[in-house]
Design a protein around this nucleic acid. Structure first.
Lengths: 145, 145
DNA sequence: AACTAATTGGACCCAAATATCCACTTGACG
DNA sequence: CGTCAAGTGGATATTTGGGTCCAATTAGTT
């Protein structure tokens, strides 16, 4: 459904969010999220360039969110690393179709639209506060690991 | 959203369906669908093993559907070549989670579920009969290419 | 100023998906 | 029964995404 990279990005954002403002270091995020540290570093770079996180180098550095969690959606995060591709023109390049999609591609694009809407409707804050047997990534709460 | 291979499979099924029972040869399907012939051949093999199409060798051979188009869904086709992966257990392998997903993964799985339902609700017949400015793949109808 | 913690960016590697090619088999038809 | 159209399956590229590694830079601390 979404790429491993997009999942990693979401996990990382959630991990940073859980620190509630404190800067979190890459190695810590890697531990919490179980993402390969080297690769996580690349993902965090992408998130920074997209303006979702801030980074500070040197001792006491790390990553922080640039916005409150209720103003950052799952779609923002996914879109930063691996945008959902909507079908806008006929993939078969039949120019006769113009802007209109054939029924097949119209349906496929509707599926993308559904996902997009679902992701846009969910904020990071929603993930943190949602009731349930465990908190995201199992960092704290009733889930002891 | 779906892999190129899954799209190819759908295009191929539609192309075969449009022949209304006549066997269609790989090279013809390749032309209509604009799929690389060699690769299409592999995809058709997969569809045959999944029981969605029949093949006949030799002169006059080709591919036919094994079921009426209103008894074959988009999900059937996608599932044959590239099944939609549902999230059933915690991807971080935190056994403490048991069968329960954390809020993040619950949301992600809901997105998969949406797509699955959407695909399951659409038959190949739906694609062929749906009104619109062009027929699927632009094989015939008001669309002249 | 030296030291150390931390991000940054580039080069490189690996595996899986995508795509190509070809030798082989099958089957219809003369 | 020979020939040719057509699917089958294996070997082999090619591409891309995921992942590793390391030298360079930045910045806080003593």
């Amino acid at each position: 459904m979404i790429s491993p990279t997009a999942e990693y990005a979401l996990r990382a954002i959630v991990a940073i969010a859980q620190a509630e403002g404190d800067a979190v270091v890459t190695s810590t995020i890697a531990e919490i999220t179980k993402v390969p540290p080297g690769y996580l570093s690349k993902v965090l770079q992408t998130l920074r360039r997209a303006g979702l996180v801030d980074s500070k180098r040197g001792l006491g550095g790390g990553f922080t969110l640039t916005r409150p969690t209720d103003q950052m959606t799952v779609l923002d995060v996914v879109g930063a690393v691996d945008p959902i591709k909507r079908i806008e023109t006929c993939p078969l390049r039949l120019d006769s179709h113009g802007r209109e999609l054939c029924p097949l591609h119209r349906r496929l694009d509707q599926a993308s639209e559904l996902v997009e809407q679902s992701f846009a409707a969910t904020t990071i804050a929603d993930l943190l506060t949602e009731p349930g047997p465990s908190t995201p990534l199992c960092k704290s709460g009733p889930c002891a690991h």
